[in-house]
Write a protein that binds this DNA or RNA. Sequence first.
DNA 1: CGCATCGTTGAGGTTGGTCAATCCCTGTGG
DNA 2: CCACAGGGATTGACCAACCTCAACGATGCG
Lengths: 221, 221
Amino acid sequence: MQGRSFCSALSGREFARLAVIVTSRSYGARQMIVQEGDQAEFLLNIVSGTVKLYRALPDGRVQIVGFLGEGDFFGVPATRCYAVSAEAVTSAQLCVFPRRSFDRLLNECPTLERRLFELAKTEVAASRDHMLLLGRKTARERVASFLVAMADKTQCARATSPCINLPMARTEIADYLGLTMETVSRTLTSLRNEGVVAVQSPGHVDVLRPDTLRHIANGEE
Amino acid sequence: MQGRSFCSALSGREFARLAVIVTSRSYGARQMIVQEGDQAEFLLNIVSGTVKLYRALPDGRVQIVGFLGEGDFFGVPATRCYAVSAEAVTSAQLCVFPRRSFDRLLNECPTLERRLFELAKTEVAASRDHMLLLGRKTARERVASFLVAMADKTQCARATSPCINLPMARTEIADYLGLTMETVSRTLTSLRNEGVVAVQSPGHVDVLRPDTLRHIANGEE
DNA sequence: CGCATCGTTGAGGTTGGTCAATCCCTGTGG
DNA sequence: CCACAGGGATTGACCAACCTCAACGATGCG
């Protein structure tokens, strides 16, 4: 999850200037947005919908490195090419900034650069969290961690029984958690049978025992 | 691996100013440097030796998120606390910058901030690489990837038969690759038996067939 | 209604983990 | 010089978590 509402770093004047160079694009579910190795000509900001970032191995194995939602931002590459592919999970609306214009703006607006730096630091921290998950957590702990993270992003997170929206498919959850679809499904079923969560529909999960879920996520059972 | 020689971003005058607030510290092998959750009072730059960054689960499982070497830099946290622990792998010499002074310098020197931003971007890209490794690669591919990465860092990488220096223990390689010590050892043995590498001593590996190793690392066999 | 897609469940296999014995290397002391 | 101890590395036997393959169920759309 890269940072939300980066535009808040801009003054009204800067924002107006930026608006001139911006175009908007719509993507249907599963539509490819950028591909690993493409020239990084654009920076993108998500207006609505969910987008996945992923890396792939030649034989088709996929690792999703993050899901982006409303307000998230991507395409600030270390090199001239994108290092990851991006694909729409749901239908999505994106703001497109030509890279050159954006770079110019960056030079004129140190606040913006600082804000992007903050986002990058948050991203590094999140990546390390995810490395711990991928390298050392069990399937059960991974799924619980995922649900906790998704609950934290949802509006009703503060409620006694948070409800979680899962716009992505089981396969995509699996590719994010380094598991198979079947293992994700089985794990969710067992969490349901234990009364930790309730699965209303594939895309809608209620957390019945948030503390238990959190404990499982942290490997504290 | 966070960025090398960040000091190159500094002008002579800025460097001189920085030098005033810098102190140097020595650490013995396995000595703790900072601990996850500690107040982030210092930024550190490695002068010599190897340092590991890691996150741990309450039951002792460890995921090493990176090894740092000469010139690498760490301690730019997104929050007030360190999100990872750091420990000396070999005996090491570090430069210590008090955070407040460093922040002040940062405000005065946009070049430095830009440089740190670049480092953070590189770090994000490296993290994503490692997520692919942890989430989707086999033990064999992980070990091969690790050897390739270590070879790329070594001086004699350009030689026809690159030699690799491994200052860290097998356990540490395992904690970096999301495996066990035993699996790392077995995998190295099988690569040796196939004539891909030669293991001179635990800390010294020669790559006999670099292309093969690279293919294995990328899952292209 | 029929089809397609996604999700769930089951049976069995494989990779990598666990536990334990042995090896190797280094350092120490007799 | 050798014996010994100790830590890391290697190897082996066994096991379990997760994957694979396959069947079945649910949901949504034309």
